[in-house]
Computed example of a mutant assay.
Amino acid sequence: MNFEFINKATGGLFRMVVESDALKGAGILSPEKSTINTFVINRTPDAQQVRIDEMAYTMPGYSLLPLVANQHFEFERPQQMIAWQFNREFYCIVDHDAEVGCVGFLFYGIHHPLFILLGEEDLRNISIIEQLCIADMQQRDRMQGEMLRTLLKRLIINSTRMAKIQTNSNELLTDEKLDIIRQFNLLLEMHFKEAHEVSYYAAVLNKSPKTLTNLFHLAGYPAPSSLIHKRIILEAKRYLFYTNKSGKEIGYELGFESPAHFSRFFKLKTGNNLSEFRKTMLLIDSGTNPD
């Protein structure tokens, strides 16, 4: 069952997907022109598999998973899930970060995938939001959009609070230091194709590369340079699996001036050359053992 609110004037979209096989994400293949972020709730005690960008993960029972627009995802039993989806025209988490504080943490964060475990009180709160959303989806007046945005903000804020506790972020870092890490994560998502050096991000954040690296070490996170490389490789893998772009085209798309440099970089970080990786992924997708 799907409930949907669309603001024709702004293009704002807010969707609630309840126990539907239609729950999936097309990632970079999506025909949607706007970015759509997703919250998925497993309300059952049973764990199930979710494939995100062709990697299999186990989503625990009674848990929540934030997903971003460029992620391709499929659930083993989507009919057991409930999800909320929204685009930036409905609610921009970047422009309104001061309200919800989720950018670079829940969305575009270091923890991936971020499975947030839900207790009894959390499940009750989500159930309240669900019922209020269903009721407001039936209202067709000028206040409808604002009411639905209020419910979405409540969901985001509650999820951010739970995630901070479960990742020990509150204990390891002050809000100011966590904000620097979140800002880095957002900058990385925006500029990883053209900015491959830590010095670029450090300069934007008005920090030295060493200070930035030390902050990530203090938080127990990988070094910024490692995160930059990981993000580039993730995007390269998406192109290799979901498009017919050549290695040369992908390299240029990701900011490498030399195809040979990109090929060496990919081989160094993955252990496979570009053609080997694409062949292996196609075999896995067809159900064939690559060995």
Rank of each mutant, 00 (worst) to 15 (best):
N87L: 10
F184C: 04
L67H: 01
H111I: 07
D291N: 11
T160P: 02
I36S: 08
E171L: 15
Q183V: 01
V17R: 15
V17A: 10
Y221W: 07
Y108H: 13
E130A: 11
E121P: 05
H112C: 02
D95W: 04
M147W: 09
L234N: 14
K24Y: 11
K248S: 11
E121D: 14
N170H: 10
L13T: 03
Y242T: 06
L151E: 01
I41Y: 04
K269G: 01
Y252C: 06
F86W: 14
R124E: 00
N42C: 03
G145F: 00
K279Y: 13
Y239F: 07
V17S: 12
D141W: 05
D97F: 03
D179F: 09
S258P: 07
L118Q: 05
H261T: 15
I284E: 06
Q49R: 14
L118E: 08
R264S: 12
I129C: 13
R149E: 10
I116N: 02
D291P: 07
A22S: 15
Y239I: 01
H261Q: 08
R182D: 00
K207D: 01
T38C: 07
L283A: 04
H112M: 01
K237L: 03
I6T: 05
L172C: 06
M1Q: 10
A83I: 07
K279A: 12
D46N: 14
I181H: 01
K164P: 00
K267Y: 07
P224Y: 03
I129D: 02
G12I: 06
T213Q: 06
C92E: 13
V40Q: 11
H229L: 09
K193R: 15
P290T: 05
L186E: 01
N185M: 13
T167I: 01
S225R: 13
T213W: 01
E146K: 13
E176G: 08
F115H: 09
E194N: 14
G247D: 11
A219Q: 00
G61R: 12
H96A: 10
L118D: 06
P224A: 04
F73I: 05
L132C: 05
E76G: 08
S275H: 12
K230Q: 10
E146G: 04
F86R: 06
Y200S: 09
I181S: 05
V100I: 15
A26C: 11
E189M: 11
L118R: 13
A69D: 03
H196M: 04
E54P: 00
K33R: 13
F192D: 00
Y221F: 15
W84T: 09
L155D: 09
